[in-house]
């Protein structure tokens, strides 16, 4: 493997109240990778993502960026909730990262419209968030993360609260966007099926304090059509990942 985009060396995170969330995390994310962090709730997956984003500082070890730390806007983040500003419409919300970067509304318009186009919300630029469905709000959140053309996209269980139909569709969309855009993605989930379907590599984490129990390369073709979910290969890999996850859960 050549030079990674980001490398974590022996990273640990203990919160001020003594809660040990992560211990001894070593991992690398290469350019163009799609890596999933898979593990039970409360195993520190989200904390790990926050450490990579620089929203929290590790209490041990380090997060290294071989090509220098990313400038603001080079990382896109999608939270578990859509996290939209209720006082702005869809356009305002997607425009926000560019606005913070000092771009004028007019200058930012093409980028915002392109991002909305990507997630299929071009016709909803002036809708208020409260008028949208849960899936659409998540798409807005995704468009906002994409609008700065980030090199790294961090997704924290973005589809966890959605129904399965919407979730499958957004998974397909995400995979398509990843195929077209060539970003690097780190995706947090507790769904084996989602992790396998989306990722090139799945890192399986055990319960608290979170450690990386196993790393599995997902040998599935690229691009991955929705029918893949019915195939025997997919099922077999899911079973293997599930087994590894069960092992990780039992290892504590």
């Amino acid at each position: 493997m050549h030079r990674p985009l980001v490398r974590l060396e022996n990273v640990a995170k203990t919160f001020p109240d003594g809660l040990e969330a992560l211990a001894g995390i070593d991992m690398e994310v290469g350019r163009g990778d799609f890596v999933s962090l898979l593990g039970p709730s409360g195993c520190g997956k989200s904390t790990l993502l926050r450490l990579i984003a620089g929203l929290a500082q590790p209490s041990g070890g380090q997060v290294l960026w071989p090509d220098g730390p990313p400038a603001p806007g080079r990382i896109g983040y999608v939270f578990q909730d859509p996290t939209l500003m209720p006082w702005g419409d869809v356009f305002d919300n997607v425009y926000l990262p560019l606005r913070i970067a000092g771009q004028g509304r007019g200058a930012a318009r093409p980028a915002v419209e392109a991002a909305l186009e990507l997630v299929g919300l071009a016709d909803f630029a002036h809708a208020p968030p409260h008028a949208l469905s849960g899936g659409m709000r998540m798409r807005v959140s995704l468009a906002r993360a994409l609008v700065t053309r980030p090199m790294l996209l961090l997704l924290d269980e973005p589809f966890g609260a959605l129904d399965e139909i919407t979730r499958f569709r957004l998974n397909d969309d995400l995979l398509r966007l990843w195929g077209e855009g060539g970003w690097t993605v780190v995706f947090v989930t507790h769904s084996v099926f989602e992790a396998v379907f989306l990722s090139q590599r799945v890192l399986i984490m055990g319960p608290r304090p979170g450690r990386i129990h196993a790393a599995m390369e997902i040998e599935l073709p690229k691009p991955r059509p929705p029918e893949l979910r019915m195939g025997a290969d997919y099922q077999r890999i899911c079973a293997a990942v599930s087994a590894s996850l069960a092992q990780a859960m039992g290892s504590c």
Binding site: R50, A53, G54, L55, P72, G73, I75, Y77, F79, D81, T83, M85, L96, P97, R99, I100, A101, T148
Partner: peptide, 20 residues
Amino acid sequence: GLQDLFRLYGAGRLQRLRLL
């Protein structure tokens, strides 16, 4: 979550005050 978002994008004190 929005506070995190503003931090992620490096918003200044005044931007945070005015926009969030």
